[in-house]
Nucleic acid binder design. Structure first.
Length: 888
DNA sequence: CTCGTCACG
DNA sequence: ACGTACGTGACGAGT
């Protein structure tokens, strides 16, 4: 029986390009999209055994859709050159595969595919359409299944008409109506503004088609009716644009798609040119060519692992087998690990995966397993062991012996892709499929733990994926020089963080509540002040209403707009200050409500009733620069700059009577790092002589002596220093200092004349990023910047600033992380009772018993300053008090 | 569920 | 000529 596979070439190339990490061959040619495309083809051929195969491409720029609507696809960003240069390679590759390619002037790939599926429907041929574009769902039929890629290209969702019905409760034909209503920003199809997927679905479930929705506009209500009425034309046109044309006059016949498999030799030649070494091995060539002993492809293969659901009577068998365990997976659901629900743990050996439900683990029968988890000599590789450690800790188990973490490794290998799931990672590494958690549990309100059997199979697959991924990633870490960063810094830190979080910090709710009372009173009076100035009452918190009052009613000049209306941010308001007395009141009101909602009410909600503590969760795999972030609550953005907010810090107190809060922060760590990596003599000299760096900068930029630097000059110099660290632009500096762009440009030029080494660093690092495709920190932390070569000015400029900033911010992050690991060692070595509680990027916060104050006051800054040796000294300032507020 | 705003380094 | 400072997380409003 025939089986056709029809592939949307442009769409898949696009998906592959954005899904794969940057990849170039030795000639510097980008090959990541080609690689993704190739793995997908290999997998399809292997799994589907097609008799016919074809890849369709869009031809030329103008299609018949532009007739009548010039803006079609107008809003779409230009294809980056890194991708467009790969199309010829993809076409060459298809030839090597022996797969037919169709394209036809004036038509898009989906029209060609639409026409072929019409033929397939008529002939009754089983057909699989592969695309990244959900529009294709309109082609689904009894014969035709649509495979839509998701996060990557090796992963697809398959849609039969039933599956379309399940997902959207629509027929395939109604997909066209869906797009007619909601539009598609990427194709510049307007739809009805303000109608997104949710609304469009609701309308279609009620009325069926765009035409019926329009006909029944009368029975809609309020805003919705207005919108539908106003945009009838757009809706009809959008529907037309979204309709795939299925009568393309094909020049190539169906016979030309016939496919009988590829010739390994031809393909291996193509792979060799592209330098796809791992794929070469998979081709399974007869001896003499590449192929190792174990070169056969695994991709798409079903997991061969046996799932063993452990019950009380099976625990002994598991315990006997513990020596063989290569990977553990601790499954805890929920966003906040401090409130996580521990479901089960899975343990993978080479041949099976044991799954132990949490209640068994926590029961008496689970004792031996618990001891194993707590055994430092029992080595464990896992996924997100930071969360696992916390979830176990709250259940009385002290996880020890972690030697590898797949999530942490994935973060180091590409920190820009923060959402690394086992589902995505196994697809990327061509390992057996692991379903996405979302597909197993559902998401949001629909979250539900599935039946035990389904759950256990899922966990077994995840544990198995960890076992397979760990050695692959370990090699990559080694190859990219991040071995030590991983094993000696990030991995130990993960456990230290878990300890800090579990410990928590005490926050006095009475102090906060009292502050809340005071703020409440001030809010009322500043609110009334605003009303008085405005001559009316309105919701000051609504940007829209505030904009109407300021700009329509009071007639103040419009400084800046957002895409939805007037901008009213602090920057704009400050510029409006001379025009009207209402402005300071609004600013004050904003400040107060922010304090009230986020820091008074928000923080109160996070205090545990039983202990009076808050337990933040530091995320180690989010920030692309290597910094930590903090959640639930965020304790890295507690107010300090303004006195009114700073008072919040009075509520952060030691958790034991007679103890103190001690804090130490690095002085100018980023500029010191810059001095080191740029090697600039003047900057180094300034730090070696412990000068005030902003004053020194003012002297050099304004060409005056130290005693002639006034506070305004110093302020401006400080802004220049910030700009330098961020990857300076004259516009950014001019905004910040409220000066003209020209003046800002002069400051910058002056700066670079004075600090020539810094200019050279900035130039060099951008050039290096362009050459390597990434930048690194002092400890070899890496960040890829593919957009550094983009032709789009904005994207490229952004990448250039990132290239300048990341080594600075990232090295600073490396250093404080080092200090944390050292500090942790010192506390243990010296058997101190003091505890490290928080990290705020350049600051560490401890709680310290009185009799250790003298030691800690010396030790902490010493460890921080000595974390690493640079060409300039590092300095940390320390202070302590009865609460966090007092440490200044 | 997205946007604008604002808290921190 | 282009249109911006780097990195985060939380909240209220409005649809």
């Amino acid at each position: 029986m025939d089986k056709w596979i029809l592939i949307d070439g442009n769409s898949i190339a696009n998906r592959a390009f954005y899904a794969m990490p940057p990849l170039t061959n030795s000639a510097g040619l980008h090959t990541n999209a080609v690689y993704g495309f190739t793995t997908m083809l290999l997998r399809l051929i292997e799994e589907e055994q097609p008799t016919h195969m074809m890849v369709a491409f869009d031809a030329g720029k103008i299609t018949f859709r532009h007739e009548g609507y010039e803006d079609y696809k107008g809003g779409r960003a230009k294809t980056p050159s890194e991708l467009s240069e790969q199309f010829p390679l993809i076409k060459e590759l298809l030839k090597a595969f022996g797969i037919a390619q169709y394209e036809l002037g004036g038509f898009e790939a989906d029209d060609i595919i639409g026409t072929l599926t019409r033929i397939a429907d008529e002939k009754g041929v089983q057909t699989l359409v592969v695309s990244g574009d959900k529009d294709m769902l309109q082609l689904a039929s009894n014969q035709v299944t649509i495979a839509i890629t998701r996060k990557g290209v090796s992963e697809v969702d398959r849609f039969t008409p039933e599956a379309v019905g399940e997902k959207y409760n629509l027929t395939p034909e109604q997909i066209i109506d869906l797009k007619g209503l909601m539009g598609d920003a990427s194709d510049n199809i307007p739809g009805i503004p303000g109608v997104g997927e949710k609304t469009a679905l609701k309308l279609l479930h009620e009325y069926g088609t765009v035409e019926e929705v329009l006909a029944n506009a009368g029975s809609l209500k309020g805003k919705m009716k207005e919108k539908v009425d106003q945009h009838r034309e757009e809706a009809l046109m959008s529907k037309k644009l979204a309709t795939i044309f299925r009568e393309v006059p094909l020049e190539q016949g169906v016979e030309e798609m016939a496919y009988s498999g590829y010739q390994p030799y031809q393909l291996s030649e193509a792979f060799r040119k592209l330098e796809f070494k791992s794929l070469l091995e998979r081709l399974d060539l007869p001896s003499g060519s590449a192929s190792g002993s174990d070169g056969a492809g695994e991709e798409g293969q079903e997991s061969a692992i046996e799932t063993v659901s452990v019950e009380a009577d099976g625990i002994q068998a598991l315990v006997d087998d513990l020596k063989q365990v290569k990977a553990v997976l601790i499954e805890a659901t929920g966003e906040n690990p401090h409130h996580a629900d521990l479901l089960a743990i899975a343990l993978a050996t080479d041949t099976k995966a044991y799954v132990v439900p949490a209640d068994l683990l926590l029961s008496e029968q689970g004792l031996l397993l618990k001891e194993w988890l707590e055994d430092e000599q029992a080595f464990k590789q896992g996924y997100d062991m930071h969360k696992a450690e916390l979830a176990l800790a709250w259940n009385g188990i002290k996880l020890k012996g972690t030697t590898f973490d797949v999530q942490l490794a994935a973060y180091l290998l590409d920190p820009s892709d923060s959402g690394q799931t086992l589902n995505g990672l196994s697809a990327r590494y061509s390992l057996p499929h692991v379903p996405a958690d979302e597909d197993v549990y559902g998401k949001g309100a629909k979250f539900k733990v599935p039946d035990q059997e389904v759950l256990h199979v899922h966990l077994a697959r995840k544990a198995e994926a960890v076992r397979r991924l760990a050695p692959l990633q370990a090699r990559e870490l080694e190859e990219s020089g991040m071995h030590r960063l991983f094993y000696e810094l990030e991995l130990p830190l993960s456990s230290i963080l878990a300890g800090m979080e579990k410990q928590g910090i005490e926050v006095r709710s009475d102090t906060i509540a009292q502050l809340g009372q005071e703020i409440e009173g001030k809010i009322t009076s500043s609110m009334n002040e605003v009303y008085r100035y405005a001559g009316m009452e309105f919701n000051i918190g609504s940007t829209r209403q505030l904009g109407e009052v300021l700009f329509d009613k009071l007639g103040l000049p419009v400084v800046k707009k957002t895409k939805t209306g007037y901008s009213t941010d602090a920057d704009v308001l400050e510029r409006l200050e001379p025009y009207h007395g209402i402005i300071p009141s609004i600013l004050h009101y904003r400040q107060l409500t922010k304090l009230q909602s986020t820091y008074v009410e928000g923080l109160l909600k996070e205090i545990r009733k039983d202990t009076g503590k808050v337990h933040t969760y530091f995320r180690q795999t989010i920030a692309a620069t290597g910094r930590l972030s903090s959640q639930f609550p965020n304790l890295q953005n507690i107010p300090i700059r303004l006195e009114e907010g700073r008072k919040i810090r009075k509520a952060f107190v030691p958790s034991e009577p007679g103890w103190f809060i001690l804090a130490a922060d690095y002085s100018q760590i980023e500029l010191r790092v810059l001095a080191h990596i740029s090697g600039d003599e003047g900057l180094k000299d300034a730090f070696i002589h412990n000068m005030d760096i902003h004053t020194k900068t003012a002297m050099d930029v304004f060409g005056v002596a130290a005693d002639q630097v006034d506070s305004n000059m110093r302020r401006q110099a400080k802004a220049v220093n910030f700009g330098i660290v961020y990857g300076i632009s004259d516009f950014g500096l001019s905004q910040n200092l409220n000066i003209t762009r020209k003046e800002a440009a002069q400051f910058i030029e002056q700066y670079f004349v004075a600090f020539k080494g810094v200019r050279k660093y900035m130039d060099d690092i951008v050039a290096q990023a362009r050459e390597d495709g990434y930048v690194t920190t002092l400890l070899e932390r890496r960040r890829y910047l593919p957009e550094i070569k983009a032709s789009n000015f904005n994207l490229r400029s952004f990448a250039e600033r990132t290239a300048m900033n990341t080594p600075i911010q990232g090295t600073a992050a490396d250093i404080i992380k080092l200090a944390m690991v050292r500090m942790n060692e010192k506390l243990a070595e010296q058997k101190l009772r003091s505890r490290m509680l928080l990290q705020v990027h350049d600051e560490l916060v401890f709680e310290v018993p009185e009799d250790e104050l003298a030691i800690m006051e010396k030790l902490v800054p010493e460890v921080m300053a000595g974390a690493i040796e640079l060409d300039v000294p590092l300095r940390a300032d320390v202070s302590y008090g009865a609460n966090w507020y007092e440490t200044k």
